[in-house]
Measured scan of single mutants.
Amino acid sequence: MIINNLKLIREKKKISQSELAALLEVSRQTINGIEKNKYNPSLQLALKIAYYLNTPLEDIFQWQ
């Protein structure tokens, strides 16, 4: 199972779901689904999230 800290990191950086979704060219619902662990992002999307949040990938997504 993958645990993610996306919501915590996104809120710490004061970025809304809508703003992050626009940067990543995905829907706000996609961001919401990832934050709620409804599904895991593709590797490409995970890397883009880490890039736009300027945060190491392993700080956002962790195996458990």
Rank of each mutant, 00 (worst) to 15 (best):
M1I: 14
I2E: 07
I2H: 09
I3M: 15
I3T: 14
I3H: 07
N4T: 02
N4W: 02
N4H: 03
N5W: 05
N5T: 04
L6Q: 03
L6K: 00
L6W: 00
K7W: 05
K7Q: 13
L8M: 14
R10G: 01
R10Y: 02
R10S: 02
R10P: 01
R10C: 04
E11H: 11
E11I: 13
E11R: 10
K12D: 11
K12H: 12
K12W: 11
K13N: 12
I15T: 04
I15A: 03
I15E: 01
Q17K: 09
Q17C: 05
S18F: 12
S18P: 07
S18R: 12
S18E: 15
E19W: 08
L20H: 00
A21W: 01
A21Q: 02
A22N: 12
A22W: 07
L23G: 12
L24T: 14
L24A: 11
E25Y: 08
E25H: 15
E25R: 14
E25M: 10
V26P: 00
V26A: 04
V26M: 05
V26K: 03
S27K: 07
S27W: 03
S27E: 10
R28M: 15
R28T: 15
R28Y: 11
R28E: 15
Q29R: 13
Q29Y: 11
Q29G: 13
Q29E: 15
Q29P: 06
T30C: 11
T30S: 06
N32C: 08
N32A: 14
N32W: 09
N32E: 15
I34T: 02
I34D: 00
E35N: 01
E35C: 02
Y39H: 10
N40R: 10
N40D: 10
N40Q: 09
N40Y: 13
P41A: 04
P41N: 01
S42A: 06
S42D: 12
S42M: 05
L43M: 14
L43I: 11
Q44T: 13
Q44V: 13
Q44C: 10
Q44W: 11
L45M: 10
A46C: 07
A46N: 01
L47Y: 12
I49Y: 01
I49V: 06
I49P: 00
A50G: 05
A50S: 11
Y51P: 01
Y51F: 12
Y51C: 08
Y52S: 07
L53C: 03
L53K: 00
L53V: 04
L53N: 00
L53Y: 01
P56R: 09
L57H: 03
L57I: 12
L57Y: 05
E58P: 10
E58F: 09
D59P: 02
D59Q: 14
D59M: 13
D59H: 11
D59N: 10
I60Y: 01
F61Q: 01
F61C: 02
F61W: 05
F61E: 01
Q62K: 11
Q62T: 09
Q62S: 10
W63F: 09
W63M: 05
W63A: 04
W63C: 05
Q64L: 07
